[in-house]
Every structure is written in structure tokens, then in C-alpha cells.
Write a protein that binds this DNA or RNA. Structure first.
Lengths: 200, 200
DNA sequence: AGAACTTACGAACACTCTGTATGAAAGTTA
DNA sequence: TAACTTTCATACAGAGTGTTCGTAAGTTCT
């Protein structure tokens, strides 16, 4: 009986997971351009051969890392939003903003999702992938708010974009502030006020 | 008498201008990472030696390009804003937003100032340079609005950040839309509404 | 179980690109 | 015009990406 016998699917999953995890910490801490593929595979305890077998290129790995980070954050926000539920969509939006700000303050998170992603993936590709995550969430909440009669019936897409822009920049602002708590309070005041302004 | 005798200051100004101009078109059209220094100096009709004499490195050239683009846009917006003047600061803010959206729709402009700049310069450096341009403009307008009694006396810095974030993302949204006129109208509706929400 | 086949990986190579070093040319100062 | 500084051209070294090719591990078929 061989000890280390693993199925191909298991091997693939293991190396991909190791590479994505290594990429996440390294890209997050140093930025995409400053991290060489060699350091990634060293961290992941594999070789460059494995990387280029599992991913098309360095960008391909980065895309996988980005998806994973977005997945994590979106899931966390979604559960928070779900607790408030459909009863008060705009309240849920405020709560979701708070969670987003907390998570996106993590340097690794904002370096990957907000700073590097647009440049590495290209803006349209970045946004296309974002549709799947944060965008779907916000647009859903806005639709619910319309259904609940909290805001007027109007195109949600431009609102979602403006909201995402405001949230992203807010996260970066907080992340760069010395007194993060104070900065968080400041921008949340502004964001809440804007959200309220849409109320019928 | 030598025909091409130029002073050192003239030589420096000429090659720097040529390099910045070449970088502006090439970075704008293809993105920072996709443009090699060789293609830049070829376009500028100088050699790599001149580039590395005039600028510390590729990032240094990019920073100069970024500054020039910001300078141009900010100047244009400032004149628009000045026409409306201090009589109606919030009106001026709306007008400035329109000009910004028009100019930032230019692919080269948004590629440089919104997509590449944060990743290449780093977010904090990006924002530090932005202080000088768009930020100063918006904060000035907000201060004027407070002085004119249009909005409540409050910290303008977080508002400026949220506003910049909303504007930047709006510009990218418009730039990516097929029907730019319609997209512009959509986001301006949202932006105007938000601006109005701050009115006392 | 063993042979034929596919998938995953390791090591070495080729190529591109950035930044530097060194020397020449142009301009400045005395 | 001679000494000096600035600007630029060329050649070189080093780092890093992506590819190629061979080997090992796993799968399928009989």
C-alpha cells in the first residue's frame, strides 16, 4: 500500500490551492508586479512547472486569487445582509457597507481587489468578474428596496456603479488613515446620508 | 554659426517633453505594463540613455505623464467651475462633474489616471499626487459651499473622497458603455441627486 | 495485473526587458 | 581655449516570464 497515493483531482486541487494561497499572501503584501513567479512557487512548495501547467500565465493565477478573495468577502457580506433580510433593504445596504469597509481595510484585500485588479485584468475584465460578486449583491438589494417601496423605481445599474465607486474609494481612504476607527465613522456618515437620500 | 545650437535647458525641456508625450500616448493606448521603454524612446526619437538620464526609471516617467494629464484635466475643469464662480458652488460642482465625465471618457485618460496610476504609483502615492489636482478643486468647492450656506459645516475630506470615488467609477462606467450619451445621463442623474442631498 | 495512454510536474532554455556603466558629444564657466 | 558639467549613446549584466521537453504519477482498457 502506497502512502501518498492521491487521485489526479486531489493533486490538482492541492497544488492549485497552494498556489492560490501563496499568491494571495504575496500579491496582497507586495503587489502584483513586485512578486516573481519563483517566490510564489517557493512559498507554495511546488515548482514553476506546476504553476504553468495549472494556470495559463501569471495573470491567470492572479485572476484565480482575485476570484477567491471576492468570493470570501461577498459571502461574508451576504450573510450579514441576509440577517436583516428583505424587511429593510436599505438598512441591509448600510450594514453591508460596514462589513465591506471592515474587510476591505485589510491591506492584502484592497491591494488585490482594488489596486492591482483593474490594472492586471483590465478594467472591463475586472468589472465583468465583479458582476458576479459585489455587483450582484448591491443590485439585488436595490431591487428589493424598490419592491419594498423604499426607493423609486429606477435603473439600478448606474446607482450600483456609483455606490461601488464610493465604497471602494472609502475603503482605500480608511485603509490609509492613521485613525481607522475615526475614518470609518466619517465615511459611514457620508455613505449613510447618501443612501438615505434615495429614500422616497 | 551653428544652426542647431541649443541651451542645456532647451535640450532638457525638449527631450523631457518628447518622452512625456510619447509615454502619454503609448501608456494611454496599451497600458503601462504592455509598453517597453524601447518603444517609448523610439516614438520620442531619442535613446534609452536619454530616458534614464532624465528620469529615475520607468515609474518616474509614468509619474511625469500622470502629472501632465491631471494638470490638463484639472485646468479645464477649473475654468468651467470659475465661470459659475462662488455664487453657486454646488452648481459649479455639478458642472465640474460633467466636464470631468467628458474628459475622463477618453480611453487614454482613464487608463492612465484611473487604472494604471494606483497600481504603478501605489495607492497612497496616487492619492498624494491627486491632492494637488482634483482633490484641491473639490475640497475648495465644498468649502465654498459651506461658506455660502449651501451645505452644513462638516468635514469636507471624507466627502471629497467619496465624491472622487463615485466620479472615477462613473467615468469608467461611461467609458465602457456602448451608448455613452445615455450612460452619461444616467450617472449624472444619480450624481446630481447625491449632490442635492447635501443641501441644507 | 499489465500495457497503452493521459495528466501533472521538474528542469533547462530562450527571449524580453529593465536598469547600469562607461565613454563621447554638447554646452557652460573661467 | 581650457577645465568642467550636463546630456546623451551604446554596450552589458541581471532578473523574470513563458516555453520546451523529458520524467513521474495516475487512469483506462483488456
Amino acid at each position: 500500500m502506497k502512502v501518498n497515493r492521491r487521485t489526479q483531482a486531489e493533486r490538482t486541487a492541492a497544488t492549485r490551492a497552494a498556489l492560490v494561497a501563496a499568491g494571495r499572501t504575496l500579491f496582497g503584501n507586495h503587489g502584483y508586479a513586485a512578486v516573481g513567479t519563483q517566490s510564489i512557487v517557493t512559498e507554495a512548495d511546488v515548482t514553476r512547472g506546476a504553476l504553468y501547467h495549472q494556470f495559463k500565465d501569471k495573470q491567470g493565477l492572479f485572476a484565480a486569487v482575485y476570484d477567491q478573495v471576492e468570493q470570501d468577502i461577498t459571502a461574508e457580506i451576504a450573510t450579514q445582509v441576509a440577517e436583516i433580510g428583505a424587511s429593510d433593504p436599505l438598512g441591509a445596504l448600510k450594514a453591508g457597507s460596514r462589513v465591506f469597509l471592515e474587510r476591505a481595510t485589510d491591506p492584502a484585500v484592497h491591494q488585490i481587489t482594488l489596486v492591482d485588479a483593474p490594472a492586471v485584468l483590465g478594467w472591463s475584465e475586472w468589472r465583468a468578474r465583479g458582476e458576479e460578486f459585489g455587483f450582484a449583491l448591491i443590485e439585488g438589494i436595490l431591487q428589493a428596496a424598490i419592491a419594498a417601496g423604499q426607493i423609486a423605481d429606477q435603473p439600478v445599474r448606474p446607482i450600483a456603479h456609483v455606490a461601488i465607486g464610493a465604497l471602494d474609494e472609502s475603503a482605500l481612504y480608511v485603509a490609509a488613515a492613521e485613525d481607522k476607527a475615526a475614518a470609518t465613522a466619517e465615511v459611514l456618515t457620508v455613505l449613510d446620508r447618501i443612501i438615505d437620500s434615495f429614500t422616497i
